[in-house]
Design a protein around this nucleic acid. Structure first.
Lengths: 230, 230
DNA sequence: TCAAAAGTGTTTGGTATACACCCATGC
DNA sequence: GCATGGGTGTATACCAAACACTTTTGA
């Protein structure tokens, strides 16, 4: 069989840029790095890299994330492909944006490797190069929508967390205050959390019960037609 | 200022493939073409083309759609970028999928140009080349979600339509029967349709009132915080 | 006069929201 | 003993779902 080789077609550079979200007590955060090469050296940027011939986009995103942060096994999702012709002044390059959710506490040490990277509160993040601001906006919109219909919030928390932490997390993601009792009632009715006997004593004298996401139970409920709706 | 030129990085072919949805009385349809070149010559496929250096992805999608169908001013949205390494056996090529919604009636004549293209009921569409089946699945899922939260359904209908047509459309998109009265009540409460004095006499003796989507009203309501929810 | 589609409201159940007080503990 | 955050239940409003009969008119 003869294959055309598409030899007349243009080829382009394809970058992968990662919006990395974290959560710390009260605030949604993003991890940024200071570029150490031109163009825009010294400015803040998402972490990124270029797709290689022998890998697919998910693999490239995983590689980029691992290489620059040491992180593994991270929740990631492809967001959108940005293609404005002059978006990168150095050369024609498109960029596929991915967003990632990580548990800051669990992974903080790996991040120290890289001193030019830094966590910012989403609200007071600096201006970013190229179209990276738009990428961040769009990823936040996606995260807000997705967090209401899939249990992805847990990716941003330690395995064990208090109801208060969980609530603060959703307040940070959705950018609005939630009612304590309604929030707990809602989550209880979903019936996908395990209440542990342990308490977290770090934030109050009384202590707060710790919970865990019961992923197995969630999965089996999904098979029976359940769907997470906050 | 010195710009790096990224000259060590791999470049790739980037295709744009379009899932074109139409609606005809009762059924959701997609427009497919029979490939007239290798690889997979003679098999059914989405319409597609390659991104050129001097255009962005939206422009490429518009160009591809226009070139192969003669259509202009079409609702389109970028869906996802598919990147499996061997997805195209001829050469490494990624594909950015777009989906488009068109009014079959209004545009049917332009499509006749191209005899190798054909409308299929979504349900009994043939097997497609490469990963195009997955693209169609994913675009349907997106359409189903989006149709509930944005008034994009109208893109698939003539300017003037009956409530019954509108209902059939949503039944086709959502793949489930809807209650006639609830459907009408819901749409009435949204208050974004104009009831015309004209009737459509083609489907009954009594005739059915025609309606139009009031886009201006919709837009101004959105500015006041309204959001379409079906 | 009858067949075929159009048009029209009300009841009911469930879910979302608003809301306030007691508990346990360390200081 | 009091200040701090933790934990709990109910009443109400609103929205979604179920549901059946009358109207029009061409054949």
């Amino acid at each position: 069989m003869t294959l055309s080789n598409y030899s007349n077609e243009d080829k382009v550079l394809l970058a992968v840029d990662c919006i990395i979200f974290g959560f710390d007590k009260e605030e949604l955060k993003i991890l940024l790095i200071q570029r150490d090469f031109e163009p825009e050296k010294g400015k803040w940027s998402l972490i990124g890299g270029f797709l290689k011939k022998e890998e697919n986009l998910d693999e490239a995103a995983i590689r980029v994330l691992h290489h620059l942060t040491g992180l593994n096994d991270i929740y990631m999702e492809q967001l959108y492909t940005f293609s404005k012709v002059d978006r990168d002044p150095a050369d024609r390059a498109l960029s596929v944006a991915y967003y990632a959710l990580i548990d800051i506490k669990n992974h903080d040490s790996s991040l120290l490797k890289r001193e030019s990277s830094k966590w910012f509160n989403l609200k007071d993040a600096p201006n970013l190069i190229f179209d990276h601001n738009r990428m961040v906006e769009r990823s936040l919109a996606r995260l807000q929508r997705k967090a209401l219909s899939k249990p992805i919030g847990f990716e941003l928390l330690p395995t064990k967390f208090t109801m208060r932490q969980l609530q603060k997390l959703y307040e940070a993601i959705l950018e609005k205050k939630l009612d304590k009792r309604n929030f707990i009632n809602k989550f209880n009715s979903l019936d996908i959390l395990i209440k542990l006997d342990e308490k977290d004593m770090s934030s109050s004298k009384k202590g707060a019960y710790l919970f865990q996401f019961d992923e197995e139970k969630y999965n089996s409920k999904v098979e029976d037609g359940f769907s997470f709706k906050l």
